[in-house]
Write a protein that binds this DNA or RNA. Sequence first.
RNA 1: GCACGCUUAGCUCAGUUGGUUAGAGCAUCUCGUUUACACCGAGGGGGUCGGGGGUUCGAAUCCCUCAGCGUGCACCA
Length: 877
Amino acid sequence: MSRIELPKAYDASKTEDSIYKSWEESGFFNPDSLKNTKDYFSIAMPPPNATGVLHTGHATMLAIQDLMTRYNRMSGKKTLWLPGTDHASIATQTKVEKIMAKENLTRHQLGRDKFLERVDEFVEDSRNTIKNQVRKMGSSCDWSRERFTLDEGLNKAVVTAFEKMYTDGLIYRGDRVVNWCPRCHSTLADDEVEYKEQQAKMYTFKYHKDFPFTIATTRPETKLGDTAVAVNPKDERYKKYIGQEFDVDFVGVSLKLKIIADRNVDMEFGTGALGVTPAHSHVDYQMAIENKLPIVKVIDKDGNIEVGFGEFSGQSVIAAREAVVEKLKNQGLLEKEEDIKNNLSICYRCGTAIEPLPSLQWFVAVDKPFKLKDKSKLKWDKDEATLKELSIHVIKNNLIKIVPERFEKTYFHWMENLHDWCISRQIWYGHQIPVWYRDQEISVGQSQPASDSWTQDEDTLDTWFSSALWTFSTLGWPEETDDLHNFHPTSVMETGYDILFFWVARMIIMSVYCLNDIPFETVYLHGLVRDENGVKMSKSLDNAIDPLDMIEKYGTDALRLSMLIGVTPGNDFKLYDDKVESYRNFVNKLWNISRYVLTSVEEVKLVDQLPGAKTLADKWILSRLSQTIEGVNKNMASYNFSLAGESLQQFTRDEFADWYLEIAKVEKNKDEILLYILQNILKLWHPFIPFITEELWQNFTSDKLLMIEKWPEAEFKIDEKSITDIKRIQDLIVNIRNLRSENKVEPAKKVAVTVIVGENEILVNNESAVIKNLARCESLTVMASGEKPVNNVGTVTTDGLEIYLDLTGIIDTVAETERINKDIIETEKYIASLKAKLANEEFAANAPEVVVNGEKEKLKTAEEKLAKLQNQLNNLK
RNA sequence: GCACGCUUAGCUCAGUUGGUUAGAGCAUCUCGUUUACACCGAGGGGGUCGGGGGUUCGAAUCCCUCAGCGUGCACCA
C-alpha cells in the first residue's frame, strides 16, 4: 500500500515560490557548486530595464533561456546563466523627469549631481521588482554574478573600451549632421529613428524673381540656409547653369547660391532642381562636403530658427514655415502648393519630429582598419581589419550561427550599409564620456588628470555602447578572470529579432574589437508576442497580457509551455488565455499520471537501473522512451524546442498515460517500469516545466533536487524479434481499423473483434490487451484456428492471422444526414453571430481595422463551409 | 523602390535534408465516465496545404509565376 496522498489537481500557486526558494538556497544556480565537468555552457541574459516591469517579451526570453540552461546543466555541463539589468539611459531619465514634473521640478533646476542621485535612488527602488519577477518565471540564473550596466566593474569596462578605441583612432569627435530630437535634447542613432507617413505640402517656388528657375521643397524654412542648388548633370534644362553663382535676396535673407551637379538628383522629382541645405539634411551635407560649400545653421537645438535670420529668428520651425510661405506668396514667387504623402522622421522614444542638425559628436569608425592582436580565434588572415569587415566575416564563416538562418541576410544587408556609429548622447544618466578638456588639450581615461582646470565632456554614451560589451564585461573584462576564460565566448545569445541591429550586431562589433573573439557561438532569435488579433502588445492599446496574471491564473509551467511549444524561432506568436489554459490542463495531466503511479505501486522508490522488460508492451514503452530521449536530444541541439516539447507531450499523454497505464491496470507487476518511465519523464520535462516536475520528484527522494539530476540516456535496445512482433501488431491494428471504417462502423458503437490464431504466436503471450487498447476495440476474442465467429461482416488476413469483425451497428445515411444537418445549424449560428458582431455599431466604431478584417475573413470561410455542407447533404440524397 | 517572411481545419499554430492515409490545441458534435485526471476519456465531422505552372516514381516541403498580408531597410529635395 502506498503512503502517498496527493490532491486531485495541481495547485501551482501553492508550490512555486517555495520550490524556487529551495533551488536558490541550494546554490546550484552557481556553476561553481556543480560537480559537472564535461564542458562549459553559458548565456548572458539580455538585461531588462532596471526600472521596467516584466512583460511577455521578458517572459518569452526567460522561458527559452531557462530551458536551455536547465537542459545543459542536467546534461553535465558547467552551466552559467548570468542575469542583470540595464540602466536604459534615455528611458530611465525620461521616467524620472516625468515624476519630477509633478513637483514642478526640472533636471536643470536640480543640477547634474543632485539629479543623478535622484535617478539612482529611483533605480535602486525599482530594480528589485524586475529581479523578483524574473524569479517568478523559474529562471535558474546565478544571482551571485548579477550585474548592472552602471556598476563599477562595467563602468571600468566601458572606459577601457573607449580608451582603447580612441587610442586606435576608432573613436573620433566630429561635426556631423546628426538626428536630433528637440524634445529629448539628444542625438539618436540612425536605427533609433522611426518613420511615420503623413500628409505634407510640397511648395514649388523661386528664391527670387531674378533667379532663373524654380525648386520644390516640403520645408521652405530650411531654405534660409541654402548654399547651393543641385541639378542632375544630364538635365538639359539646367546644364548651362552648372558652376554659376547667384546672389539672391530670399524673403529678406541674402543667400549665395552655387549651382552644382549631382547625379543622385532625380530629374523627375519636383522641378528637377534641389535646394541644398547642408546643415539640415544628411544628403545635402554630403553634397556640401564634396563641393566644399559653406554650412549655414538655420535651426537651433530647440527646433527654433537661429539668430541672424531677421524676422524669422526665434520662431518655431512650423511658424517660420508659414511665414516664409506667406512672404513668397506676397512676392508672387510661390508657383505651386500641392498635397503629398511623405515619411516624417520621428524619435523612437517620444515621437517628436527629428531635426537633422550639425553638431559636435563622438563616433565609432566602422570602416577604419585597426591592428588585430590575435587573429587565430577569428580565423582572420590579415593583420588589419575594419569593424565592418570582421563583423561580416564572423557570420559569413559560420563562427557565429544565427537561428533562424534567414536573419543572416538581413544582418549582412544592415552591416554592409552601416555608417559610423554616433555614440554620444546629450543626457545625464548613463556613462559620462571619459574625456576631459583643458584649452586645446584632450585627455581620455578612467579619471580626471591630476592637475586642475580640466572639464569633463558633458555628454553620456549611447546605452548600446555599454550593452555591446555585455557578454564579456559581466565576466570581469578587462581583467583576465577565470570566468572570462571559462565562459566566454558565451554559448548562445537569445533575444528578440527586433534588436538584432540595436544590440546583437553591436555586441559582435565590440567583441571582435576588444577581445578579437566572438561574443557568442549562436544567436537564437525569438519572435514577438502578439495579442489574440495579431496586434503588437503595447501599453497605449491596452491589449497587453500581463505574464504575472497568467502565472497567477494558470501557473508558471503552463505559461512557459505556451511560449515554448507551437512556437518557432523568428516568428511572432499569439498569446491568449485559452492557450495557456490548455497547457495548464496538460500540466495537470502529468500531475495525475504521477499521482496514479505513486499510489498504485507497492513501494515508492527511485529506479536508477533499466528494469527488465517482460512483455511486448514493456518492450514497446521502453523502446519508445529511448526514441523519445533521442528525439528530444536531437531537437534540443538543433534549437527545435517546439518539436522537442511536442514529442514529449505525445509520449507522455498518448503513449504512457493513455495506453501503457491502461495496460498496467490489467497486467500486474509493472511497478519498476512505471517508476522508471515516470522518473525519466519528469527529468525530460524538467527544463520545460521545472516547478511541477521538481514538486513531483520530491515524492521519490527528499534530499536530491531534480534540477541537478543526470539527463536520461536512451538505454533500452529493443531486439529484432520484438520489432517484428510490434510491427505485426501494428499491422493488425491498422487492419482492424480499416475493417471498421470500410464497414462504416460508427465509432461509438460497440465492436467485437475475433482473431483466429493460426501459426502466429504473438497473441499467445497475453498481448491481446495491447491490441485491444491500440485498436480501440470493445472486446477482443482469441479463438483457435478452424473456428469462425457468428456475426461476421468483414475479414482480413495478416501474417497468418484471420481477423473477423463482429458488429452491432452499421452507419446509415439517415444518421449521416442528421449529423450534417446539425453541423449546418451550428455553422449558421456561427455565421449569424459574426454578422451580428460586424453589424454592431460600437464594434465597428472602436475595433482596429485588422480585427474587423479578421472577422470578415472568418465570415467568408464559414459561409464557404456552409456551402460545402449543403453540397454534401445533396450528394447523400 | 529593395529585401525578407507569411498564407496548412471555424480559430491559433506545428509539420526537421521531398516519402505510408497532412498533425496538435481550442471550438463544435456523438458517446462515455465521477477511485489517476471534468483542469477527464473514446470517437466523429471539418483541409483540392493561397491560385497557376514546373521538377520528381512521389511535393505542404524544391523551382518559376501571380495574388493577398506582414516586417525590415532605403528614399522622399
